[in-house]
Design a protein around this nucleic acid. Structure first.
Lengths: 149, 149
DNA sequence: CTTATTGCAAACCGTTTGCAATGAG
DNA sequence: CTCATTGCAAACGGTTTGCAATAAG
């Protein structure tokens, strides 16, 4: 599908782009650019950081990959499936990201936009806190992840 | 009130901190660090960028000022009044920020957290799109603000 | 006096970009 | 062949920090 997008735009299907797409779509995980640098290295495919950023931009532009700032300095990416949408619970202790969907919230958002005559194009909704795992482990050296908020 | 916080922590009430607090609390506007640099200069009080950042950190830490990344590279700050909370509609054309509160959404969030046994400490909810002003002005060179997304 | 705070400039960190070399079509 | 793409390293933009000078308590 990325290929279709590229061809339609007369862009080139390169080894790097294909490899990145494959790697990203091989899991459902959320990731940041640096994770991808490492995953590509581990996988044995060398791709420069610049290309990673440029490709993520393309994937984001065509709607295949979502990009959000969860109140951090860096972007977080996730593969997207069309028509699907969800919000996030972010654990500030271990960095875990839980996805949730709530129809009532979505509906209320539409109402709010209508009220302000606001034409929404996207939204991001994140709840920060401590996940159940870390709450249980409280006191027993919670698993602080390197980059967690 | 900032003074109380400082004294309680055995920190010093300096000319710079007082001036920054006064300036920030003189309006309700949202602002970024750079706005503050300019507002302080205009006001005739010279304060270094470093001190601005350090003071914002303090104000944020004690809950007097909120800090969010509205999917941009920089932080956005806003004065907070205790017990008060709101979410944001951000116009990607003119940069305007509209605040909104919706009890139903807040309630649903609590339900979601309960479901995942997640202990929420904060949340940020932003809807991006085009405000009514820009929608009306559409076609007539919308007022793109320098830093708008 | 003592210790926190300030301003400066340099460091930082993630991301973006100019440019020459490379490779897809 | 031609033009997009790549990798590198340097640039960027906002934020943070080490340090010597300064000022609050």
């Amino acid at each position: 599908m990325f290929d279709d997008f590229l061809r339609k735009k007369a862009l080139k299907v390169t080894r790097e782009r294909t490899a990145l797409f494959d790697e990203i779509f091989s899991t459902h995980r959320h990731f940041d650019a640096e994770d991808l640098v490492i995953r590509m290295r581990d996988r044995g495919t060398k791709v420069s950081r610049a290309t990673i950023y440029r490709t993520l931009e393309l994937l984001h532009g065509c709607g295949l990959v979502g990009r959000v700032r969860l109140n951090e300095e860096k972007y977080r990416y996730e593969r997207l499936r069309k028509g699907e949408h969800h919000d996030h619970l972010v654990c500030s202790s271990c960095g875990k990201v839980i996805e949730f969907v709530d129809a009532a919230i979505e509906k209320r958002q539409e109402a709010v936009c209508k009220e302000y005559e606001f034409l929404a194009t996207s939204h991001s909704h994140q709840i920060s806190g401590v996940c159940s795992g870390c709450r249980k482990a409280a006191g027993k050296t919670p698993g602080r992840v390197p980059g967690a908020a």
